[in-house]
Simulated assay, not measured.
Amino acid sequence: MAKNNEANQETASGFNPAEFFQETKEELAKVVWPSRQQVISESLAVLSMVALIASLIYFIDKFFGWAATQVFG
């Protein structure tokens, strides 16, 4: 029953922007942010994998294009 009263009070009071930003600031303080080196190394890993997969798709496409011209003339 106490939870119903709390829920009703929250919805009845409406949205408070100052309280929202304060709570957001508190939550962001709890986040464990990565170091600059970690961000750089993980970004390079992602870009490398994207380049690798894009190259793989390109060569597979070229191969199937070549094969299609061989079969269908």
Rank of each mutant, 00 (worst) to 15 (best):
M1L: 14
M1Y: 06
M1N: 15
M1H: 14
A2R: 08
A2D: 13
K3L: 15
K3Q: 15
N4A: 15
N5W: 08
E6S: 13
E6L: 11
E6Y: 06
A7W: 03
A7S: 13
N8K: 10
N8C: 12
N8R: 14
Q9H: 14
E10V: 09
T11V: 14
T11F: 12
T11Q: 15
S13Q: 12
N16W: 00
N16I: 01
P17V: 01
P17G: 05
A18W: 01
E19T: 02
E19K: 04
E19N: 10
F20T: 00
F21S: 03
F21C: 02
Q22D: 09
Q22F: 00
Q22A: 09
Q22W: 01
E23S: 04
E23N: 04
E23Y: 00
T24E: 08
T24G: 09
K25Y: 02
K25L: 11
E26M: 04
E26P: 01
E26V: 01
E27P: 00
E27A: 10
L28G: 07
L28F: 02
L28R: 03
A29H: 08
A29Y: 02
K30V: 01
K30L: 03
K30Q: 11
V31I: 07
V31K: 06
V31G: 07
V32Y: 06
W33G: 08
W33M: 09
W33F: 10
W33P: 03
P34R: 00
P34T: 01
P34H: 01
P34N: 03
R36S: 15
R36M: 14
Q37T: 13
Q37L: 14
Q37H: 13
Q38I: 03
Q38L: 07
V39M: 08
V39C: 07
S41I: 04
E42G: 04
S43A: 06
A45N: 07
A45G: 07
V46D: 08
V46C: 05
L47Y: 05
L47F: 09
L47P: 02
L47T: 10
L47Q: 12
S48G: 01
V50I: 13
V50T: 12
A51E: 15
A51F: 09
L52W: 10
I53F: 05
I53Q: 09
A54W: 02
A54F: 05
L56T: 10
Y58G: 12
F59M: 11
F59I: 05
F59K: 06
I60K: 04
I60P: 01
D61I: 07
D61T: 13
D61Y: 12
D61L: 12
D61R: 14
K62M: 14
F63N: 07
F63R: 05
F64H: 10
G65E: 03
G65L: 02
G65R: 02
A67R: 10
A67M: 08
A68P: 02
A68S: 15
A68Q: 14
T69C: 06
T69V: 07
T69S: 13
V71Y: 05
F72L: 04
F72Q: 08
G73W: 00
G73A: 06
